[in-house]
Amino acid sequence: MSSPSWTVSRLLLAALAVLWVLPSQAAQQVRVGAAHFPPYTVRPESGADTGLLPQLVEALNQLQTDYQFVLVPTSIPRRFGDFKQGRVDMAIFENPDWGWKDIPHTTVDMGLEDAEIFVAQRKPDRQQSYFADLAGKRLALFSGYHYEFANFNADPKFLAQNFNATLTYSHDSNLLMVLRDRADIALVTRSYLSDYLLRNEKVADELLVSQRIDQVYHHYALLSPAAPISGPAFSKLLQGLRDNGQMLKIFEPYKISLVPVPKS
């Protein structure tokens, strides 16, 4: 028979063990939609996703233990349905103007800005004025993207009929079309072009990059009404990543600007 003091000691140890594991058990899972959107999310045919979104999710999970952020595969066209049907709790690197106006959500300003720019093949007589008028030019676009020059209409038929556009799911393919004279202009994000030129230094002199910007991407996180994390709570986590330098470390190499977040 064990003594009363030994029994009490065992009960205390058991209670401490329970308290020790409670934080990990209490972590609420937050499902983040991961659509192929280079360089934010790169979804290879096999293997794990790479890009800025996986880096951000890892940093969020390392910052705290209240929430466990996990990536859920989706696609650019399918992400709206996945959000509405509750398959994902959050869409990151979004903008409410990109087809979200009729879908209930909470908007969180991420304080990040990228830009969409025009790229053409460099030729002796070709100057910046080449980008001023898109009429009559063959465009290479990323399928599903919302472009300002097209009034954010992402319908493939509309873009093909009105802007002589070829749509693909690869910025690399679009830039190759320009280099091989199969398209006159490709539109790519500044962040992607920065990464592309690091990987393809030899073609840098063959490309003419526009000073004209189609649009500035001001990034937001969109939270479902049923998401386990609130807008203010997620804003606080993002501020924590700013304070510890992780936001700058993740985004600065891709020329994505950290800008002040307006106080609510």
Rank of each mutant, 00 (worst) to 15 (best):
R182I: 06
Q211W: 08
Q85Y: 11
P4H: 02
S24R: 10
D125V: 02
S75G: 15
R242V: 04
L12Y: 04
R138M: 05
P38H: 09
L176F: 13
T168L: 05
Q25C: 08
S257M: 11
E45Y: 10
N95C: 07
D133M: 05
N153L: 10
P23L: 14
R182H: 13
K236T: 13
N244C: 07
A91R: 11
S257K: 15
Q25M: 08
A35F: 09
E206K: 05
Q161P: 09
Q127D: 00
L237R: 15
L141A: 04
L112T: 06
P39L: 14
K202G: 00
K255Y: 07
R182D: 15
P38Q: 13
Q29G: 00
K137E: 06
D82E: 14
A140P: 10
I103A: 07
A140E: 08
I229P: 00
H105Q: 06
P260F: 13
I103M: 08
L208G: 02
P260Y: 04
F163W: 15
M90A: 14
S210A: 06
E252L: 11
A17V: 07
V18L: 15
M247Y: 10
S194T: 15
N162L: 12
H146D: 03
V32C: 00
S257H: 10
E206C: 06
Y147W: 07
P124T: 02
A132L: 03
L53Y: 03
D114V: 01
S5L: 13
F149Y: 12
A150R: 14
P124K: 05
F158H: 11
E116V: 01
G245V: 09
R79A: 12
N95D: 15
L238E: 09
T189G: 04
E201Y: 08
F142R: 12
D114E: 14
A115D: 02
I213G: 00
E252P: 01
I185F: 01
V261F: 08
R87Y: 14
F118Q: 03
V30G: 00
I250L: 10
A150Q: 12
L16D: 01
P39N: 03
F93M: 03
Y40H: 07
V203E: 01
V42R: 08
Y67I: 12
L141N: 02
T189Q: 10
S170F: 13
G240T: 08
R182A: 09
D184E: 09
F131R: 09
A186Q: 13
Q85T: 11
